[in-house]
Amino acid sequence: MADKHTDKQQNVSTTQQPEPSESKQKKNDSPTKLILKRFVRNKLALAGIITLLIIITVSFSAPLLTDHDPTRTDMLNVNAEPSDEHLLGTNPSGQDNFARLLYGGQISIQIGFYITLIVTVIGVVLGSLSGYYGGRVDSLIMRVTDLFLIFPFLLLVLTVVTILEDTSLLIFVVTLGLIVWPNITRILRGSYLSLREQEYVLSARAIGASDFRIMRKHLIPNAIGPIIVNATVVMAQMIILESGLSFLGFGIPDPTPTWGKMLEEARNLGVLTQRPFEWFPPGIMIVLTVLSINFIGDGLRDAFDPKSRSRR
């Protein structure tokens, strides 16, 4: 019993108070609180999170903000100019642009979020296995990631989306999730390689903690920084990727609105030059969302990694 006790103490001191200098200054703050404090001090990150929250709130309260169905076509009212009825006019199918902007936001954000979720789960599981066990498991998983990484990314995505033909939201998300996971897997494996040699891990193993417990209690909490930072990067990338694919005509099929599909309308010269109200709002929304997420990611990275402060 005594042994176990000391082990726990050692573990606590190494994992949760990784920077002695910080803890000297504010002895009473928990590490989580410290991270939060550092995060809040970062103004860009704070602005990012506020902007993102606003965008999410507005998008998801779409039914309260507009009566229009974003998919409902109206042949007698195509390419309408902005008016009280249609705040941002209508598109060439007579669908209300404002409703499409709001509902499109839901879809675009959801796509980003769900892909990130899938990627993170796959990345954490495979990265953990690979980094913790090493050996054959490691080489197998790493060769598979290599295989995915050597393909030109966009080409692979285009090919898979074309082959699958019926790209519903679910299929789209799962497909991209299955393509994008290797990066995060490699990063996690890297952190595990150094973490697993730490004394507290060795001690935990020595007293007979199961592999699963060691990963859950000791490894993942220490690798959470890179995981979260990577997740934000992936989410921002995926929102852009969705827009890009939609723009190229490979995204979510009609009539579901997304920001990328609204941008696609601007390929026509007339729309581009005379109807900025049609493509400017979704463009701005994409920029704001992606910037916000990136700022949050930067802020989190700095907050998780106290050493990075010196670089500022």
Binding site: T71, S93, P253, D254, P255
Partner: peptide, 23 residues
């Protein structure tokens, strides 16, 4: 391409369910 959605919605009003496949 745009006609597909219009046809779907027109027929929905009649009461005929149309399942539009991805183009």
């Amino acid at each position: 391409e745009r006609a597909a959605t219009v046809i779907e919605q027109n027929l929905e009003e009649v009461g005929i369910r149309v399942d539009v496949q991805s183009p």
